[in-house]
Amino acid sequence: MQDARIRLFSFVSLSIATFLSVPGAVLSLGWLLLSPGTLRETMKSAAFWVILLFVTIIATATQMSGNDGLSYFIRTGVIILLGFSVYREWHPGEYLDLSVWLFGKKAGFDIGLAVEMSIQGLHEASREFARIRSALSLKGLQPGIRLIPAVGFLMIHTRLMRARDQADLLATRGYRAGGSCCPVFRTSNRDITMGILAILVVFLSFMPVRDIFILQM
């Protein structure tokens, strides 16, 4: 999806639908399947599987204690999948555009800048972690519990260094609050279709299953 406004709207709508009911979660999953490329990329993320593992553990414990663990697993799993998919589709600068479009050039610019810097930071941290793992393997060190403090300290250090550089850069450029930004969005027919389908998913998730499928006894 190209238009960040429709993407965010769809994400919020589908998250509500998924949270409300299992059919909503299943329909949201169907919506995600309409973008197989993004879904495939999301499935490659190690972080996604790690989080899903924790969700599975909690769901199993819930199910074993007599509650509806399966429903929890399906709904939470799809919400995580939605979150990762939206994160995958991010392009630099689009949340700044989106925030300015939503909240204006003062508060909107500040919020957008903070969001952009945070997402950029996550991307960089992910790249840095990959480099650190490579550096460890070059030294013949296997990642393990003993190395967690060293790697953790290194990640924090590099993030703080980066934050300081960014703060210096913003100050040098005279940033105080707000800023000038002219949001530009490109909307394709596919974006509109996906947006309409997301609304439809929310609508259907409110309806009981028996109203959607006419079951004959």
Partner: peptide, 12 residues
Amino acid sequence: TLSFQYPEYHIT
């Protein structure tokens, strides 16, 4: 072996 551009990555 490989030496990365940023030496911090190698610190253990």
